[in-house]
Amino acid sequence: MAEPGKHEKYEALIYACHALAPVRTVVAHPCDDSSLTGAIEAAEAKIIKPILVGPEARIRALAASLHLELSGIELVDQPYSHASAEKAVQLVRAGEADALMKGSLHTDELMAEVVRKDAGIRTERRISHVFIMDVPTYPKPLFITDAAVNIFPTLEDKIDIVQNAIELAHALRIELPKVAILSAIETISSKIPSTIDAAALCKMADRGQITGGVLDGPLALDNAISRDAAAIKHIKSPVAGDADILLVPDLEAGNMLAKELTFLANAVAAGIVLGARVPIILTSRADSVQTRMASCAVAALYAHARRMAAARIGKLVE
């Protein structure tokens, strides 16, 4: 587990929200200690302005037992978790919120409503997950994608996964994020499909099919995050040894990497889902208070960045 005070990168993310208005956030079914506490604490820190969707009597009783103050917080009564997920997505579709936060319901239950063709909040972009990791041994936040949604992404899927992560990095004020496309080796081999995907993605970036970042790959993990390892293998690259974003070959690799960093390198991992109309905050019961706050902060910064971009586009159209 992480030691208190060891994760200044998360503290910086939370601090960056202080100058922004709280983001309207629908919280779907916050019916356990951790999900309700996380939402209220993020509200008290003025990161989000929550709308709690779920069984009202149960939420109020839970809040009383935890000594949490609900005055001034909107509650939308729904009888059970599936109804809560459906209503939460409806509120987003109606423009009532700029972010969606998972409560104590199962992730699949919430995401099923998100991706519904008739009433969901999908866009033309592939939905993907990004871990924003605070690793004490790495000098900056490290993004890992996708370790939670896309199991075996195709090359076309990876285009959107990379673009989602790049746009998140922009929202977190990283002007030109460096994207390392990971594989087991740093050379291209037809025997390892992820190296072929890496080469294709890099060429796509050269041709403008992926924008806003610097891509390189295939890179092994050591070459992506260690300048010394890259130098030993004579890799000359603006990305090698200094990556902001790690694009993993598949969910299994990403999940293992994130958990290895958490349990062996004392890292903590905030998480967010992108590609829908609004950012989606997926939290776990095992998340620390700081991790939950960081996830909310990331969603808030992303939502504000999207709103500003939309406003700029609107002015150009006028």
Rank of each mutant, 00 (worst) to 15 (best):
E3M: 12
V214W: 10
K191E: 10
T211F: 00
A2G: 03
G208E: 07
F152S: 10
A45E: 15
P177C: 12
G217P: 03
T137C: 08
A165I: 09
E3F: 04
A311W: 12
P79H: 09
H234S: 15
D146S: 04
R173S: 15
L36N: 07
I225A: 12
S65M: 08
E156T: 04
L282C: 10
T107L: 04
I281C: 00
I48S: 04
L36T: 06
A45P: 02
K46T: 13
P50Y: 13
I313V: 14
A16S: 12
I144Y: 07
G241H: 03
A64C: 07
L246K: 03
A269H: 03
V149G: 04
Y10W: 11
A45I: 06
V76N: 02
I313E: 15
V130P: 02
I210K: 00
D222F: 00
V268A: 10
G208I: 05
A148K: 02
E44T: 10
R277F: 06
A300M: 00
K203G: 00
T145S: 13
A297Q: 08
I73H: 05
Y302T: 04
I48M: 06
A310M: 14
D160S: 14
N255T: 01
A300G: 07
R116Q: 12
M1Y: 12
L168R: 02
V92N: 09
I196K: 06
R122K: 13
S128A: 14
D32V: 09
H304N: 08
T25P: 10
M293E: 14
A299P: 02
L221E: 15
I272D: 01
V135M: 02
Q163R: 15
A21C: 12
A147E: 09
I181N: 01
A300D: 00
S65T: 14
I185T: 15
I188S: 08
A119T: 15
V135F: 07
D197H: 11
I192Q: 03
A297S: 15
Y302I: 03
I313P: 01
M1E: 14
L176V: 13
K102C: 08
D244I: 05
L246A: 04
L105T: 13
